[in-house]
Design a protein around this nucleic acid. Structure first.
Lengths: 339, 339
DNA sequence: CTGAAAGCGCTTACAG
DNA sequence: CTGAAAGCGCTTACAG
């Protein structure tokens, strides 16, 4: 592979000068610059990243911490982030981490070796050492899509509690009083959305009944099916469901269909997130839209300013969400679903 | 950040020795080794990747070339690949590339600077220079999920033609004779699956009629809706559809539902790929399953052996696919769909 | 505007 | 088993 030294020789200048033109610095004789550029082109020279990173003690890359089993919402988010990162001239390095201590430790270890300029967290890492490392080394970090006040990091998110509340409110406005919930306790947003559900009921004077709520292990479609099965098996009466993620809602609708129930005729369902597929399910899913692309864009620009500016102040930004009414919700039938 | 030199000083040895124990080489006094390991632990030392990469002239990372707008099938594939790469001790560097020359050029440029040990292609890059670069620099590369004989690379794929043929055959076996096709010309597999469709018809003695086929720009759900609209607008009669990807099929089903048609009552539909969501759509989609995780696993191990062994022989591996019969296909109704 | 020189943090013959 | 030394390909004061 051709090196800066070779270019210098071919162009009859020193490596310092070559370095200057490669990095667009001022003060280079135009003719020499032209000559150098010509040699670069002729040889197909591209600076060696490793050497550059080493001497500059930075890598121009930002780490994206993402769950191994990222869901569709996160998939959209990270595409956006990656895209904007490139615009800002960063490379991105993905750190897929599983739900295990070893995996988190491995992630930390890798982070230490790579000297990323900053990190964007799409995943809640538990390992305390991880956060200590970021803090003590002043590594700029932004949390995309959730809120974690204990962490010293800028965070971009919607108000999970209010979003959940809005979803449930939509059901209440429609006239529903018996509203089931499929929820989970993994990650902060699980608890926050659960909280929002309770707040909405309370504000409407409907008493909270834990019989109507099921907690599932994760937030995938199969979990949604399992959750709905559990709910149906309890033989209780409800006319609507709030599933705290779209995937959960899709699973629930699938199970309802299997059992011969009609959505929204028999049961209304609302999800949360507005992943792509929710516009195409049968019926189309009513949900809360998170402003994914704004979140992605903002995460990157906040991180960039954290990296480049002097002020290392962390902010907490709550973006607005929107209720998207589609086909999976309707007024309750007069007759109750189950006697 | 603590460096190898510091560790050497604290342990009272030379950097050579520290390097030896860090890299698990033989011939180190057990006591010194213990002392060094202890210092490493105490300081939290992790070798600087950039320095290491530079001197070793390799990066221990493999590049994964993937379309900016990767679909759900590719998403599953690349999770698998990333996972296995880690098992083999590689890092992975994602190269998202859009459908434009600039994007492909940028990808090549970055590749040159990063000196990846190898690359896995999930995307058909057009730029000739790209392939020239891989070839002339003997960069091990494997194509995951499609076949491109012109490229000098190992490839792991299913026989696209036969897979499409099997999908259409399923429809024929069911008794369908008027089978529409939603297809695309982008990427080789588009043409190959189209070919498979024609082969199946021919083998069954059904004449190919281009009235029954529509070519869409890409392979997403909205494209599937558009394709089905076009087909319906033509007012022709058909009782079944083969959509060359599951996403296309899902879009087609969505549009059929919107127009009041019943799947599979009025029209049967088969997709291809078997992405996750296809098990949960209403109705569940009949499709051809590609063995994604085997493909991912195999891509990685083939690449690894290309990187480590002497023999740089490229192979072409066609893996078996499976027809997954679900709910979206059935025998045709007696009466034709449209008069 | 330009070049010689030092240094970044590692690995790897080489000599002992 | 171990250390001194060279070298990887860059950037960056520094002196001119």
């Amino acid at each position: 592979m051709v090196s800066i030294k070779e270019i210098a020789e071919k162009a009859g200048v020193s490596v310092s000068t070559v370095s200057r033109v490669i990095n667009d610095k001022q003060n280079v004789n135009p003719e020499k610059r032209a000559k150098i550029l010509q040699m670069v082109k002729a040889t197909g020279y591209v600076p060696n990243r490793a050497a550059r990173d080493m001497v500059m003690k930075r890598s121009f890359t930002v780490g994206i911490i993402i769950p191994m089993t990222f869901n569709m919402f996160q998939r959209q988010l990270f595409s956006d982030i990656e895209h904007h990162l490139e615009e800002f001239g960063y490379h991105s390095s993905f750190y897929f981490v599983a739900m295990s201590q070893e995996s988190e430790t491995a992630c930390l270890r890798r982070l230490k070796g790579e000297k990323t300029d900053g990190v964007i967290l799409l995943h809640e890492i538990e390992l305390p050492e991880f956060h200590e490392y970021l803090e003590t080394n002043d590594i700029p970090s932004v949390i995309a899509t959730f809120e974690k006040e204990q962490w010293k990091a800028t965070s971009i998110h919607i108000s999970e509690k209010e979003a959940a509340c809005a979803a449930v409110n939509h059901l209440i406005m429609l006239g529903h009083k018996e509203i089931a919930l499929i929820c989970g306790k993994r990650y902060s947003f699980g608890n926050q959305r659960w909280q929002g559900y309770m707040n909405a009921l309370e504000a409407a004077g409907i008493s909270y009944d834990e019989k109507n709520v099921v907690f599932v292990d994760s937030y995938s479609i199969p979990d949604g099916m399992a959750g709905m099965k559990e709910l149906l098996d309890r033989k209780l009466s409800f006319s609507a469901l709030f599933a705290i993620t779209d995937e959960l809602a899709i699973g629930a609708m699938r199970y309802l269909e299997d059992q011969g129930y009609h959505v929204p005729g028999d049961i209304s369902v609302v999800g949360c997130d507005d992943i792509e597929i929710s516009s195409y399910t049968i019926p189309r899913l009513t949900t809360i839209r998170q402003p994914v692309s704004e979140m992605g864009h903002m995460s990157v620009s906040m991180l960039h300013s954290l990296i480049t500016s002097e002020s290392k102040m962390n902010v907490n930004i709550a973006l607005p969400f929107t209720l998207i009414e589609r086909e999976s919700t309707a007024k309750p039938k007069k007759a109750k679903l189950l006697p």
